[in-house]
C-alpha cells in the first residue's frame, strides 16, 4: 500500500492514478414510506444513481443539507444498507455479491466512527473491553497480548490508559470519541467512515479530534469517507469534496477548487451561507429560498431548480449534463458558474 503524505495547500489533489479502494457504480437507494392515505405508499429516493471512486489514502468528504442523502450514501459504501440497485466494490471485489460470511470478514477492513460517541459505545462494557472486542473476535487475541495491543491503541488515540477500566459514561465527549476511534482502528482497517464524527463535539474538542483523524490517516494510510455538515472542518481535512443535493452528487472536486471556485450554484450558496469567524469579512451571500424539497417528489429536470437563483425553463425540462474537468472537478449544471471542460 502506498502511503501518501498530506501536504497542506493546493497540491493535495495531484496524485498518481491508482485503483480505487471503493467504487460506487450507479448506486441507488429507495425507501418506501407511508403516504397520505391509509394504504398509499410513496417511494423516497435517498440516493439516486451515484457513481464515484474513493482512491486509497485519500479523504473524500460528503457535504449537503440534512435530507441530501449523504448519510445513506456513506452506509451504502460499506453495505451497511442494501442498495436498491447498482454495485459497490471494495478493493475491486463486489460487496453487493458477497455472502454474509464473506461480508463479515471484509467488514474488518472498513470501520465506522459515529456522530454520537456515547450512543455508539455499549454502556455496560468498560472502554478497554469495547476496544478489545474486535481483536478478541476477529484476531483471537487473549491475555497479555490483547492487553498490550489495547494499551497501544489507547496511546495511539491519546487516551490515558488509567481510564481503561471505566465505563463510557464516566468519560467526556472527546474521550468517548477517542474510544470510538480506537475501536475503529483496532483491526487496522483500510477504510473509515466518519459519519458526522466531529459534529456534536465542542469547538475545542472538535479541533483535537480533527487533528487526531488527520494524524491517523498519515500514520496508518487510512482512507476516509468523511460525512459532515460543518464546512470549515471539511475544508480542513478533505482532499476531495462531494456536494450532495436530493440524492445526487451535484458537484465534486478537489477541496480547494470547490471552496475557492464552486461551479454549482448550490455549492456556492452552501459556502456563502457558512458564517466566517471574521467580522471584517464581506462576501456576496446567496440566500436560498425555502428548504430542500421532499425526496418523495424530486423536481423534474435539474433537482435544484426550485431554489436556484439562476434557473431557466431549460432546467425544468432537461436533466443537467455531467461536466468533468481535467482536475477531476465534476459538476451537473446547465449553467456552471466556473469554466468546467465537458
Amino acid at each position: 500500500m502506498s502511503t501518501t503524505t498530506t501536504v497542506p495547500g493546493g497540491d493535495r489533489a495531484v496524485r498518481p492514478p491508482t485503483a480505487p479502494l471503493v467504487r460506487l457504480d450507479h448506486v441507488s437507494k429507495h425507501f418506501t414510506t407511508k403516504g397520505a392515505g391509509l394504504f398509499s405508499r410513496r417511494t423516497l429516493t435517498a440516493v439516486d444513481d451515484v457513481s464515484l471512486d474513493l482512491p486509497p489514502a485519500h479523504t473524500f468528504a460528503l457535504v449537503g443539507e440534512s435530507g441530501s442523502g449523504k448519510s445513506t450514501l456513506g452506509r451504502l459504501a460499506l453495505r451497511l444498507t442494501e442498495p436498491s440497485s447498482g454495485r459497490v466494490h471494495f478493493e475491486g471485489r463486489d460487496l453487493t455479491a458477497m455472502s454474509p460470511r464473506q461480508l463479515r470478514r471484509t467488514r474488518q477492513q472498513m470501520q465506522v466512527v459515529f456522530q454520537d460517541p456515547l450512543g455508539s459505545l455499549d454502556p455496560r462494557m468498560s472502554v478497554a473491553d469495547i476496544v478489545a472486542e474486535p481483536l478478541r473476535v476477529h484476531r483471537g487475541l487473549r491475555g497479555s497480548e490483547l492487553d498490550d495491543r489495547v494499551a497501544a491503541l489507547f496511546e495511539q488515540v491519546g487516551l490515558d490508559t488509567s481510564r481503561m477500566r471505566q465505563r463510557p459514561k464516566a468519560l467526556s465527549g472527546g474521550q468517548r470519541q477517542r474510544v470510538g476511534i480506537a475501536r475503529a482502528i483496532a483491526l487496522e482497517p483500510r477504510l473509515l467512515l466518519a459519519d458526522e464524527a466531529v459534529s456534536a463535539l465542542d469547538v475545542s474538542v472538535q479541533a483535537q479530534i480533527t487533528n487526531l483523524l488527520a494524524e491517523l490517516r498519515e500514520r496508518l494510510g487510512l482512507t476516509y469517507l468523511f460525512i459532515a455538515h460543518g464546512l470549515p472542518v471539511v475544508r480542513q481535512i478533505a482532499d476531495t469534496v462531494g456536494v450532495m443535493y436530493l440524492g445526487r452528487v451535484v458537484e465534486q472536486g478537489p477541496v480547494d477548487e470547490i471552496f475557492s471556485a464552486p461551479a454549482h450554484p448550490y455549492t456556492k450558496a452552501l459556502i456563502s451561507a457558512q458564517p466566517v469567524a471574521d467580522p471584517t469579512y464581506r462576501r456576496e451571500r446567496v440566500l436560498l429560498q425555502g428548504e430542500i424539497p421532499s425526496a418523495t417528489a424530486i423536481p423534474s429536470g435539474c433537482r435544484f431548480r426550485t431554489r436556484c437563483p439562476i434557473a431557466t425553463a431549460t432546467c425544468a425540462e432537461v436533466a443537467p449534463p455531467r461536466l468533468v474537468s481535467s482536475t477531476g472537478h465534476v459538476v451537473e449544471c446547465h449553467y456552471p458558474l466556473e469554466e468546467v471542460v465537458a
Binding site: L78, L80, L103, R104, R105, T106, R107, Q108, M110, Q111, V112, F114, D116, G119, S120, L121, D122, P123, E133, P134, V137, H138, G180, R183, L187
Partner: peptide, 20 residues
C-alpha cells in the same frame, strides 16, 4: 441503539451481538 449498529459494522455475528 448505535452501539448495536457499531457491533454490526464490526462484522460480529448475529449471535454475538444478541448475546453480548
Amino acid at each position: 441503539r448505535l452501539f448495536v449498529e457499531a457491533a454490526r459494522s464490526n462484522g460480529f455475528s448475529a449471535f454475538r451481538i444478541l448475546w453480548r
